[in-house]
């Protein structure tokens, strides 16, 4: 559990910024996938367990469009 009582981290892809580079689903396929046009999506729909936060951060740091954000 995180200090505020939540046990997940929210991961979001901004569809207005995502251009389908696919760095997220290349690097962290356990958290991210592609839709039918190649745009990134969070497989869980948003919440990921804290032990996978490192993977989410890795995607954030490699997205060329800065389209991914995490929020505890």
């Amino acid at each position: 559990m995180l200090p505020d009582g939540k046990n997940t981290v929210d991961v979001e892809i901004d569809p207005g910024r995502c251009q389908g580079h696919g760095r997220c689903y290349d690097l962290v396929p356990e958290l991210f996938g592609e839709d039918e046009e190649g745009y990134g999506r969070v497989l869980s729909g948003g919440p990921v367990p804290p032990d996978q936060e490192a993977g989410a951060r890795r995607a954030v740091l490699n997205c060329p469009e800065r389209a991914i954000a995490t929020q505890p």
């Binding site: 251009q19 580079h21 890795r58 740091l61 490699n62 997205c63 060329p64 469009e65």
Partner: peptide
């Protein structure tokens, strides 16, 4: 390299 936001495939709508 762990952090690599390169632009080899372009940026924006013309990716």
């Amino acid at each position: 390299r762990e952090v690599n936001r390169h632009a080899a495939f372009g940026l924006g709508i013309h990716r």
